[in-house]
C-alpha cells in the first residue's frame, strides 16, 4: 500500500519515458508559432490541418453564432482570417494542452477536468490583464497559464497515493498545496513542472515563471511580470471558484505587493474577471468543458 516516494530526478525520468512526453513537439511548435510575429496563416494552417479534431473545433468556432457568418466556412485558412490569427493559435494551443489534462477522475475534490477549467480561466484572465492593463498581446501568458499547474497532473499520474495523501492534508489544513508538497516531498509541483518543461526544451520565459508562480516576488527580474500575473490570476480564479485551485490561503503581503508592483487596481481586476466569466460561459456553451 505504501507507495515508494520518487525523487525529483526519478519522476522526471518517468515522465520522460511516458506518453506525456509525446505531445511536447506539437506544443513547442505551437508556442514557437505563437511567439513568431512573422509566422503566416499558411504555417498555422499546416499545423492545424494535420490534426482533424483541432480543425473541426476551429471550423465549429468560426461557424458559431458569435462570429455571425452569413455563409458556412469550410476552409481553415479562411477561418483563421475570420476568427483572428491569435485566437486560432490560442485555441490550437488549448486543444493540445487539453491532451495533458485527459485521464481518469481520481477524486470528487480533484479531477483533471476541474484543473483544466481552472487553467483555461487562468489563461483567459492572464490574456486580458496583459491586453487591457499592459497593452500587450500576452501570448506567453496564455500558454503559461494553461500549463502552470501540469506538475499536479504529473504527480497524480506517477505518485497517485502520495498525491492523494497530500491532497487530503491540503484539504483539511490551511496550507497551500505546494507548501504541503514541500513538506512531504522536498519539492513542489511548480518545480517539477518547470524542470520537465526545461527538459522538454521550453524557453526560459516559460519554465521559469512556472517555477516562481507561488513566490512571484522571488522571481528573477526578467520573468517577474509573468510569474506575478500567474500568481494573481491563481488568486482571482480561486476567488471565483473556477475549477480546482491549489490555494488555501493568501499571503496578503505578497498579494498587495504584486498589485502595487505592476500598478494594478483590484477594481480593474474585478472588471477583467467579469469578462472572463462571459468568455467561460460562451466556451461552456461550445462544449469546451
Amino acid at each position: 500500500m505504501n507507495q515508494k516516494q520518487m525523487s525529483l530526478n526519478e519522476l522526471k525520468q518517468a515522465i520522460h519515458n511516458s506518453e506525456l512526453a509525446s505531445i511536447k513537439t506539437v506544443l513547442l511548435e505551437l508556442i514557437r508559432l505563437i511567439n513568431d510575429p512573422s509566422s503566416s496563416a499558411k504555417q498555422l494552417k499546416d499545423v492545424v490541418e494535420i490534426d482533424p479534431p483541432l480543425s473541426t473545433r476551429i471550423l465549429k468556432l468560426a461557424n458559431s453564432a458569435y462570429y455571425g457568418m452569413a455563409r458556412r466556412i469550410t476552409d481553415i485558412q479562411e477561418a483563421i482570417i475570420w476568427i483572428g490569427f491569435d485566437t486560432v493559435k490560442h485555441i490550437a494551443l488549448s486543444m493540445k494542452a487539453l491532451e495533458l489534462f485527459m485521464g481518469n477522475e481520481l477524486d470528487i475534490f480533484f479531477s483533471r477536468s476541474n484543473l483544466w477549467k481552472f487553467s483555461v480561466a487562468s489563461a483567459l484572465a492572464g490574456k486580458l490583464i496583459y491586453r487591457r492593463e499592459f497593452k500587450e498581446l500576452g501570448n506567453d501568458i496564455y500558454a503559461l497559464a494553461l500549463l502552470h499547474n501540469i506538475g499536479l497532473i504529473m504527480l497524480e499520474q506517477f505518485q497517485p497515493e502520495i498525491f492523494k495523501k497530500n491532497l487530503m492534508n491540503f484539504k483539511s489544513g490551511t496550507k497551500n498545496l505546494n507548501e504541503v508538497e514541500q513538506n512531504a516531498l522536498g519539492f513542489d509541483h511548480a518545480l517539477l513542472a518547470s524542470e520537465v518543461m526545461r527538459e522538454w526544451d521550453f524557453n526560459e520565459k516559460l519554465y521559469l515563471p512556472v517555477r516562481f508562480h507561488h513566490q512571484p516576488l522571488l522571481a528573477p527580474r526578467h520573468i517577474r511580470k509573468e510569474a506575478t500575473v500567474l500568481y494573481l490570476i491563481d488568486q482571482l480564479c480561486t476567488q471565483k471558484e473556477y475549477g480546482f485551485s491549489d490555494l488555501a490561503n493568501t499571503n496578503q503581503f505578497t498579494y498587495k505587493s504584486s498589485l502595487k508592483l505592476y500598478d494594478l487596481e483590484e477594481l480593474a481586476l474585478e472588471s477583467i474577471m467579469e469578462s472572463v466569466h462571459e468568455d467561460l460561459t460562451r466556451m461552456e456553451q461550445l462544449g469546451w468543458f
Partner: peptide
C-alpha cells in the same frame, strides 16, 4: 476603469486587426 480597459482592448484589437489585415493581404 472599464473605459480605460476597453480603450486598451480596442487598441489591441486594432493591432491584431492590422496584423490580420496584413496577413489577409498576403
Amino acid at each position: 476603469t472599464k473605459l480605460r480597459q476597453l480603450q486598451n482592448e480596442l487598441k489591441m484589437t486594432q493591432l491584431e486587426f492590422n496584423e490580420t489585415n496584413q496577413k489577409y493581404l498576403e
